[in-house]
């Protein structure tokens, strides 16, 4: 084993940040102004939504699970926020609580299915995605309801777009989320237990840890973060639309993996996943600046993920 002053996990996180910086540098070469402050903040703003979803995905992946219900939990959250707030500031708080609650409940249901009903995570969260999709479409009549066209309450739009100290509010929010999630994972009992379960659920159980309850909570958190991203996306774009959650499944998993979180669980952290979200978004922006068509982006996406996976090394568990 090589003598390195940094752990392999820390190196992966650094690699993810390095990739992000590199992409901005490349962008600056191919497109003057790419690395300007305004351009960077607008790219980071886009990365925020991926990053928030990735926070939830990160929690679940850390215990060796996966959340495929992201697209419709996010989409349903966006719709619920619009329809329950009716674009009025006075109803915004109520709508936000309701929406986050919906995400939390959907996540908990995933956790219950995985932990107590013994349904494989892939199947349970896939089914949940369908369940929420059906409910969202059915209850809104396929987005034809009167309230469906509602705009986000101005206060929510402002909480995304308003600029504080030159930086959009949503970015500040993401920064807070990064700090909180990193704090929770790194310094709290809950975080420690999460790593313990991801590392060796049997050993964690034999050390007296309530593995089931913790796992259910982690799925709940994933639902919560998807819902939060949905709320902010409505604030960002103004209205909810069908299919707005679809890209976030692939991107959240990709961000988590690029950020060095092991898909088998137990290793990695949210700092890395956040960097993954940034580099992914920066990559897209660079490719856009190069006038790369859609298909090219899709291909390069896949190639970059494969390259990083191979770079990070083999599955050390076996």
């Amino acid at each position: 084993m090589k003598r390195l002053s940094l752990s392999p996990d820390a190196l992966r996180v650094l690699a993810a940040y390095g990739a992000a910086v590199l992409l901005f540098v490349i962008g600056a070469f191919v497109h003057p102004g790419f690395a300007s402050f305004g351009s960077i903040t607008s790219i980071l703003l886009v990365a925020t939504f991926v990053g928030l979803v990735a926070a939830g995905q990160c929690f679940v992946v850390l215990v060796g699970g996966i959340d495929l219900s992201v697209p419709w939990v996010l989409n349903a959250a966006a719709i619920l926020l619009a329809t329950s707030s009716l674009g009025q500031d006075s109803r915004a708080a109520y709508a936000v609580v309701l929406t986050l609650g919906m995400g939390l409940v959907a996540g908990f249901a995933n956790g219950v299915g995985v932990v107590w009903l013994g349904v494989p995570a892939v199947v349970m969260t896939l089914a949940m995605n369908g369940i929420i999709e059906g409910l969202a479409l059915g209850l809104t009549g396929g987005m034809t309801c009167g309230a469906c066209a509602s705009y986000a309450p101005p206060v929510i739009a402002a909480s995304v777009h308003d600029v504080w100290l030159g930086v959009p509010a949503a970015l500040w929010l993401w920064l807070v989320v990064i700090l909180i999630v990193s704090f929770v994972l790194g310094l709290t009992r809950f975080g420690r237990i999460t790593y313990a379960i991801g590392n060796n659920p049997r050993a964690a159980y034999l050390a007296g840890i309530n593995v089931s309850l913790t796992t259910v909570c982690l799925y709940g958190l994933s639902g919560l973060f998807s819902a939060l991203a949905g709320i902010l996306l409505v604030g960002f774009g103004g209205q909810a639309s069908l299919g707005m959650g679809t890209p976030y499944l692939f991107q959240s998993i990709a961000a988590v993996v690029i950020g060095g979180v092991s898909i088998l669980g137990g290793r990695g952290n949210y700092l890395g996943a956040a960097a993954g979200a940034v580099s992914l978004t920066a990559l897209v922006s660079v490719l856009l600046a190069l006038n790369m068509p859609d298909y090219g982006r899709s291909i390069i996406y896949g190639v970059v993920i494969l390259a990083l996976l191979l770079l990070y090394g083999r599955d050390q568990r076996e």
Partner: peptide, 18 residues
């Protein structure tokens, strides 16, 4: 690569779609 199938095939999915 001894990598997890779920992430490998997710990446190739993107490539093939492109």
């Amino acid at each position: 690569g001894r990598l997890q199938p779920i992430v490998v095939t997710l990446a190739t999915l993107s490539i093939l779609q492109g």
